[in-house]
């Protein structure tokens, strides 16, 4: 019996040893750094516990950064969700399957056009010396600057929506195809007209996917750095930009405030991803896969 147990233990060890690289990797490059980040956000250089870093995280500069990030993410996710769902529906309903799959491929490929190249693409079009800017000025004598600026918050919205839209299209098309035909028929059969079907069945069933989409888009914009960095530099403070500055030590003060900002961002992103996961799980369960 004892021998058998020893044998079992050996077997178990043999089995688990293959997982060591992964476990060590996760500890070293995921959990320990994040754990230390959280710890540092609560401690002074001396090692004493403190909430001081969180107090400084709520100073007007950083509040502004958070507010800008949340506003930008919220607005572009909202535009992305609704426009994306609408466009996704039109693509989903497109009668010619070849064109439909080309449109889906287009959405898929354009998601690769992000970050610095995207920001610069918009500068080429709508920058102060941009092609469209100049064209409007020369041809119609319409000076869009300084009322509009691609380097402003509006410009950021325009640029962010560019990467939000195709993402939502890709997310929502499976949701539309998950709407089973027999739900529609069952509703009709029970006396519902088209409107009543959408109100009572179609839209509620799409809801988890829409919420999941919104959350993913929000997180997507909230965590973005390269696009805004290229477009606005550090002129327009976003929270990711401020954390970035804390790394390069451009704003060197008590070390912990960057960690505090990071922990708060982590919580915001974590909440988004958690809701996103719940939404997709629900949608998956509903469509029976």
């Amino acid at each position: 019996m004892a021998k058998y147990r020893r044998e079992q233990k050996k077997n178990f060890l043999k089995k688990i040893v293959g997982l060591f690289p992964f476990i060590i990797f996760c500890l070293a490059f995921e959990f320990v750094p994040i754990f230390i980040l959280v710890r540092d956000s609560f401690s002074l250089k001396s090692g004493d516990l403190t909430l001081q870093h969180y107090q400084s995280a709520f100073e007007p500069t950083y509040l502004k950064g958070f507010w800008n990030s949340i506003k930008l993410s919220g607005v572009t996710a909202l535009i992305g969700t609704f426009l994306g769902a609408g466009i996704g529906y039109q693509i989903f309903k497109w009668p010619n399957k070849k064109i439909q799959s080309t449109l889906i491929t287009l959405s898929d490929v354009t998601t690769n056009f992000a970050g610095a190249p995207l920001a610069f693409g918009f500068i080429i079009i709508l920058g102060s010396a941009g092609v469209v800017t100049k064209f409007l000025l020369n041809t119609f004598h319409w000076k869009i600057y300084p009322d509009f600026s691609i380097y402003s918050f509006t410009g950021l919205i325009l640029t962010y929506v560019y990467f939000q839209l195709p993402l939502m299209v890709l997310l929502i098309i499976p949701a539309f195809s998950g709407l089973r035909q027999d739900w529609r028929e069952a509703a009709q059969n029970l006396g519902a007209n088209k409107m009543e079907y959408w109100r009572n069945v179609g839209i509620p069933i799409l809801m988890p996917s829409m919420i999941a989409g919104y959350m993913l888009l929000f997180a997507n914009a909230f965590g973005a750095y390269a696009t805004a960095f290229t477009l606005t530099g550090l002129r327009l403070p976003l929270i990711t930009m401020q954390i970035g500055s804390a790394i390069s030590g451009e704003v060197m003060r008590e070390q912990g405030h960057g960690q505090a900002l990071a922990v708060i961002s982590l919580l915001i992103m974590g909440a988004c991803i958690a809701i996103y996961q719940m939404g997709t799980n629900k949608a998956r369960k509903w469509s029976g896969h």
Binding site: F29, G223, I247, A262
Partner: peptide, 15 residues
Amino acid sequence: FAIPTVVLALSYVRV
């Protein structure tokens, strides 16, 4: 998925 890249970078640089 839930870790913003800047946060990941910050944690590595600090640890």
